[in-house]
Structures are given as C-alpha cells and as structure tokens.
Amino acid sequence: MTSRDLILARIRAAVGDAPDVEIPRGYRGPGAESDGLIEHFAERVRDYRAVVHVVDAAEVAAAIGDALARREAGRVVVPAGFPAEWLAESVIEDLTTVDAVVTTCAVAIAETGTIVLDAGDGMGRRALTLVPDYHLCVVRADQVVPGVPDALTRLDPVRPLTWISGPSATSDIELNRVEGVHGPRTLEVIISI
C-alpha cells in the first residue's frame, strides 16, 4: 500500500460517517458599502509607516520623478508593461546593483492597506520588488477595493501573487514591530486619482 493510499484510507476510517458541516457566511462579503475609499486606503498604508501620495492622474509622472529624485535613486528597474507615459522601462540583469524599483499593482485593499502584485504588466517577476531596497508603487483609484473579499474576486490564483502591506518588518524582538528586514526597507505609494 502506498503512503497516499494509506493516508486516504485512514481519513475515510476517521471521518467517513461524520456529518457534514454547513458554512455560515454572515460576514461582510464582496461589494460592501465604501465611502472615502481612497482616503481610507491612504491612511491605512501610512499606518505601516509607508510614504503615500495622492495625486491627479496627470501628475503621476512628475510624482514618480520627484520620489526617485528625493531618493537619489540612480539605477531604477521598471518592469515590462509599465505605462510609458509615467516612466520608460528599464531592464536590469543584476538586481543587487539596483537602487529602486517602480511598479504598478493588480489590486489594492483599503481596509488593510494592502497592495497586491500579480507579476503582470508593470509588475514583472516577483524578485524585482524584493531585492531592491526601495519600492515605489503606483495605484490607480479604480484598483482600490474596500476589503479582502473584494480583492480575491479580482485576482487570478494561477498567477504568482505577492500581497504587500507596508515595508518589510519583524515583530520577532519582544513582539514589537520594526520596519526593514529582508524585503524593501522603504515602501512609497502613489495613488493616482
């Protein structure tokens, strides 16, 4: 008997005659009411000690330029598919020499201050937003959803997904949160309205 068959047989013996369970879903699902979504999202991202700017769509390119200038970022990686009107793509082979990465996102969650990347256009493979020490992410207003349930309906699980809530952090020392460990130590978010 293979271990697979053995484990499955044990499961059958253990719960084969147990009654099934109905799942009550009385919690707030997708499509809940949401006023001041952008404000809410911005405030929640700031709570993680990330830098947040809310700018007009026409001002995004300038805001990106300003942010990178403030950062004095020389080598910037910009993934394929990033909107050309915001910033030109730049392909860099060795990520360890990069100062900054600029990306779009797939969806953003107001209640938890989360941005989700799905490796699509303007986001690139997962390592791009991991190795550089500075991550600048542009979020379009129509990408912001109220809560976690809304976000899941917009995401495709077949794609590799990275949910980002603030800069990398740890609570491993006396259970107090400290920002900046292995991932980018600085997260900056530009919300385009």
Partner: peptide
C-alpha cells in the same frame, strides 16, 4: 495583531 502581515505569497504549481 496587524490588519495584514507585510508579505503574503501565493503560488500555484511550478512558477517562474
């Protein structure tokens, strides 16, 4: 005790 942890990774099968 956070609204969301800093990073969550999700992958399906062999990726990248």
């Amino acid at each position: 005790g956070e609204r969301m942890n800093p990073y969550t990774s999700m992958w399906t099968g062999a990726v990248e």
